[in-house]
C-alpha cells in the first residue's frame, strides 16, 4: 500500500486510514534502526532535500537519518549557505532544487502555509517539517506512535497539552491527530498563550495546571520559547515556572501510569523539572527514537516505492 497523495502538509488533511497506514509502516521499519547495519535499500537512487529556513538540529537530523537508513541521497540546504540571503524567493529556491531532480523536499519555514504554498509550485513531494505556528505533522505522527506504543490505544485517553498553544505548530498538529483518533484533549496555559477560539479546535480549556492534570493519561509539555517574554504574554520565567512547571508533586495528580512527553529541546526547571524529565514516566527519548521510524515510513510511502 502507498499513500495516494503527493505531499504531507498537515494532519488536518489526513484520514484516519492514512494515519494508521503510516503508523503500521513505521512499526515494520523500526526494526531497521536496531540492526548492526542500519540500512535497507528501499529508497536507493532517490534524492531527498532538507530545506530548512529555520534553525533545527533534531528534526533535520531525524529526517536525514531516516532518509539514509532507506539508502536515499540526502542534501541539507539551509538559508545561511543559500541564495535566500541574496533575495531569492522560496519558490525559486525550491524550483532550482527540483530541477536537480529531488524526489522529496522536506521544508521547515517560519511562514504558516509555506509547505502548502510550495507544494502548489513543485512536482516533488513536499513534507512539512514545520510551518510557522501552523503544523508540524511528523511530530504529531511520532507522538501518536509513542502514545500507542505505551498505551496501546488512543480512543478514550485524556491528553493534556501544556504551554504556549497559541504559537505552537506541535500543539495544532497534535490536537488535530488526537481528535481524529478519539482522544479527549485538554489544553492548559496562561490565557495569553491560547489562541482565539481555541475551543473550536476541539479541546477543553484550563488555566490552572492542577485542574487539567486530574485524570490525565498523557501529559504533553510544550517548550517555552523565551523570546515570548518581551511580548507581554508572561510576566517572568519565574512566574511561569511557578505556575506551569511539571514537578513530581504535580505529576501525582495525573493517573498513576501517566506518561510525560516533550518535543524538545527541554528547558529544565522552566516547563519540566529534572526529576520528571528523568523519571520512568518520561518517554521523551522514545519520541526521538520513534521519530526516525515514522519519518522513514512517510518517505517510503510518499516515494512511490511502496
Amino acid at each position: 500500500m502507498a499513500l495516494s497523495r503527493k505531499d504531507l502538509l498537515a494532519i488536518h488533511d489526513l484520514s484516519v486510514e492514512e494515519i494508521e497506514l503510516i503508523l503500521t509502516t513505521a512499526e515494520s521499519l523500526k526494526e531497521v534502526s536496531g540492526r548492526d547495519i542500519k540500512k535497507v535499500p528501499a529508497l536507493r537512487g532517490k534524492t531527498i532535500v532538507n530545506l530548512f529556513f529555520e534553525p533545527s538540529t533534531r528534526t533535520r537530523t531525524s529526517f536525514e537519518l531516516a532518509a539514509k537508513r532507506l539508502s536515499a541521497d540526502v542534501i541539507n540546504f539551509s538559508p545561511s549557505t543559500s541564495s535566500i540571503v541574496k533575495g531569492e524567493t522560496l519558490i525559486d529556491t525550491a524550483r532550482n532544487i527540483e530541477s536537480m531532480k529531488a524526489d522529496i523536499i522536506v521544508l521547515r519555514h517560519s511562514s504558516p502555509g509555506a509547505a502548502e504554498h510550495l507544494a502548489r509550485f513543485v512536482q516533488s513531494s513536499v513534507i512539512n517539517a514545520g510551518d510557522g505556528w501552523h503544523e508540524h505533522p511528523t511530530q504529531a505522527l511520532l507522538d501518536l506512535y509513542t502514545i500507542k506504543e505505551k498505551k496501546e490505544k488512543i480512543e478514550g485517553l485524556t491528553i493534556v497539552i501544556v504551554g504556549d498553544v497559541a504559537h505552537s505548530r506541535v500543539a495544532r498538529s497534535n490536537i488535530a491527530i488526537l481528535n481524529k483518533l478519539g482522544a479527549q484533549v485538554r489544553v492548559v496555559a496562561p490565557p495569553t498563550m491560547l489562541p482565539s477560539c481555541v475551543e473550536r479546535l476541539g479541546v477543553s480549556v484550563f488555566y490552572r495546571f492542577e485542574d487539567a492534570l486530574i485524570g490525565a493519561d498523557v501529559i504533553m509539555m510544550l517548550r517555552l520559547q523565551r523570546e515570548r517574554l518581551g511580548q507581554a504574554l508572561l510576566p517572568s520565567l519565574r512566574e511561569y515556572a511557578t505556575l506551569f512547571c511539571l514537578t513530581a508533586a504535580r505529576l501525582k495528580l495525573a493517573k498513576p501510569e501517566a506518561i510525560v512527553m516533550h518535543p524538545g529541546p527541554l528547558n529544565r526547571g522552566i516547563e519540566i523539572s529534572p526529576e520528571v524529565a528523568d523519571s520512568s514516566a518520561a518517554v521523551i527519548l522514545d519520541q526521538v527514537t520513534n521519530g526516525v521510524s515514522v519519518r522513514m515510513a512517510l518517505m517510503y510511502l510518499l516515494s512511490g516505492s511502496a
Binding site: G113, D131, G132, S196, C197, L201, Q231
Partner: peptide, 21 residues
C-alpha cells in the same frame, strides 16, 4: 495588530496565522 495578517478568530487559529482582532 501586532504583525497580524488576517482576521483573528477560528480560521486564523486553524491556519496558525497571526490574527488582527
Amino acid at each position: 495588530t501586532d504583525g497580524g495578517c488576517m482576521n483573528e478568530g477560528a480560521v486564523s487559529t486553524e491556519l496558525g496565522m497571526p490574527g488582527i482582532p
